[in-house]
Design a protein around this nucleic acid. Structure first.
Length: 288
DNA sequence: ACACGGACCTGAAGGC
DNA sequence: TGCCTTCAGGTCCGTG
């Protein structure tokens, strides 16, 4: 589920019930997610107030009133769901409560439950002043929707890189937040082949290439649209069953193998290939 | 430094 | 109804 737009959607959904609220009790139901949870995790969080809910790349960051920061990553299948005290109907059909691993009982009576079937997600609790040096966060590239990310940056990082654009954009050290879906989507938007070498974005006669310009714009555009879509469908989903982290978005290429290319005037068909072990969807006609 | 493949874990979907 | 294989939105780690 979660690439940057989904994590941002989750952040916006959780903020109203968590930001500024005290955790009356945190229940930890197993010793580990992907990694062992920190020592005394539950007792260090119980009674703390969550000051804000921020996002960096695909990480949720929750600064606490203890000068510590709770770091959360959803992996592949991590989901949060919100339940209000009265509702005891149990989780929706597509959630197996056996994978409810962490339960936040907020002082307001709201419960936020972290469910993660594959357990690729993780949480950590670190002193605020160590956050920037945290091994998980220290090497991350710029936020694609922030000021530091642009064509000139991409062109610089692409210099001499032998890898293809697919792998280049999946690398969180280059730009932080894209995953398998939005890399395909962004490359389609930009009209660039996922097989093209990254170095072909590098500067020519001192200036970022036109391709780098297109790609930077495409990444911003695709992510911005997905966040907008997540935000709007989230409200409907919450009305239905109070859950978070699931939403529909109309992808232009992802998951559309064999279907017509949606670029205006393009006669192509979407193809699926495998790059570094993962599906890539693209149109061989309009992506060069 | 970079590039690549395998590893982690569970569940859903498809073929026979 | 099984059983088996493949695939899934992430990223870490070991190997060249």
């Amino acid at each position: 589920m979660p690439e940057l737009p989904e994590v941002e959607t989750v952040r916006r959904g959780l903020s109203p019930v968590m930001a500024g609220v005290r955790i009356a009790e945190l229940e930890q139901r197993r010793p580990d997610l992907r990694f062992p949870l920190p020592e005394r995790f539950a007792s260090r969080l119980s009674g703390r107030t969550l000051l804000r809910l921020d996002r960096r790349a695909k990480y949720l960051l929750a600064p606490l009133d203890s000068r510590e920061v709770l770091i959360m990553h959803l992996g592949m299948t991590g989901r949060f769901r919100i339940t209000h005290g009265m509702e005891e109907a149990g989780p929706p059909a597509d959630i197996d409560p056996a994978h409810d691993h962490i339960v936040f009982r907020m002082a307001t009576g709201v419960t936020v439950t972290y469910n993660d079937a594959r357990r690729f997600g993780f949480m950590d609790l670190v002193p605020e002043r160590h956050l920037d040096r945290h091994p998980l966060l220290a090497g991350l590239g710029p936020e694609p929707l922030g000021n530091a990310f642009n064509a000139a940056y991409l062109a610089d990082r692409a210099r001499g890189r032998a890898t293809d654009l697919k792998a280049f954009l999946l690398d969180q050290r280059i730009v932080a937040g894209l995953g398998n879906i939005y890399v395909s989507e962004a490359l389609h938007h930009a009209g660039l082949s996922p097989n093209r070498s990254a170095r072909s974005l590098a500067r020519k006669s001192g200036r970022p290439t036109e391709r780098a310009e297109r790609l930077a714009r495409a990444i911003r555009s695709v992510l911005t649209d997905a966040i907008a879509a997540g935000g709007s469908t989230l409200r409907d989903y919450r009305r239905a069953d109070g859950a978070l982290g699931d939403f529909q978005h109309a992808f232009r290429v992802y998951g559309r193998e064999g279907a017509p290319c949606l670029r205006k005037g393009c006669p192509g068909t979407v193809r699926r290939t495998v790059q570094s072990g993962r599906s890539t969807f693209f149109c061989g006609q309009c992506q060069r």
